[in-house]
Simulated scan of single mutants.
Amino acid sequence: MSNALLENRDYTLIVAKTAASIATMPPGYENRWAAAHSAIVALAQTCEELDPDGITVYISSRDHSEGAFKRYEQVTPAQVDEIFQDNYPPETLSLLDGLQLALDEYSIRKTAKLTKQNGAIIIVLIDGEPLDRMKIAKAIAHAANALDSNNELGIGFAHIGNDLIARGFLSALDDDLRSRFGAKFDIVHTKVFQEIDPTCLTDFLTDILQR
């Protein structure tokens, strides 16, 4: 697949980090987010190169004045560090909140004919078992059923950590979105974040569309 399909597309990054996952994981788990930080910045940089007007970032935050997730628009890679530092993760988190915001935003922009020619890619960085798993699957299937083509919208889950329940759920979204959840298109691709080659991030983005 040519990189041309990755261009002229909006990119959204959802950072679903929880403090509880750090507290309950084995020693060294907290360092995984720190170790992944440079790769996250590189991912943001790659997305910005493809989306020059800046990416959209949703990040989980303990500050509930703006909901479970804070939204930042037209983010550049240089701003990613500041966004991480400004938001301490909550102890519990409903991924559905952030994902639904991103899906609704795409739907609104599409109705208003404001989306880019090739559509959008949503990347979700998640470290543990998400709440409301069935609601998440239904929300994604609903979004898939509103699409005009298979490559219009892609959702990539990058799993940080080794939570087996989370990994099993994400694998189900990847493998069974059509057969189990009734989606018209398979729009989900999942990957263990540590297995993504930081020097070939466009390969990960391409895989989100190829599935």
Rank of each mutant, 00 (worst) to 15 (best):
A141H: 13
I136T: 04
H142R: 14
L114D: 00
Q85E: 15
I121V: 15
H142M: 13
S94G: 14
A112D: 12
E82W: 12
P89K: 02
K138L: 12
Q117T: 14
L101P: 03
T92M: 09
G119R: 06
I123S: 10
A102Q: 04
L114R: 12
L131R: 09
V80C: 08
Y88D: 13
M134E: 12
N118E: 05
I122L: 14
A141Q: 07
N118C: 04
G128M: 04
R109I: 01
G128Q: 05
D104G: 08
I108S: 09
E105A: 15
P130C: 03
D81L: 07
I83L: 07
K138W: 09
A102G: 07
T92H: 08
P77E: 03
L125P: 07
A139R: 08
Q85H: 13
D81Q: 11
T92K: 11
D127P: 01
E129P: 05
H142L: 12
E105H: 13
Q79P: 01
P89M: 03
L125N: 05
Q117A: 12
P90N: 00
A144P: 07
I83E: 00
E105C: 13
Y106E: 09
E73S: 13
I136E: 02
A137E: 03
K116D: 00
D104H: 13
D127S: 01
T111C: 09
D81W: 06
S94N: 15
E129D: 10
L96R: 06
S94R: 15
I121D: 10
Y88N: 11
Y88S: 13
Y106L: 12
L95I: 01
L114E: 08
G119D: 03
A144R: 09
K135I: 03
T92P: 04
K116L: 03
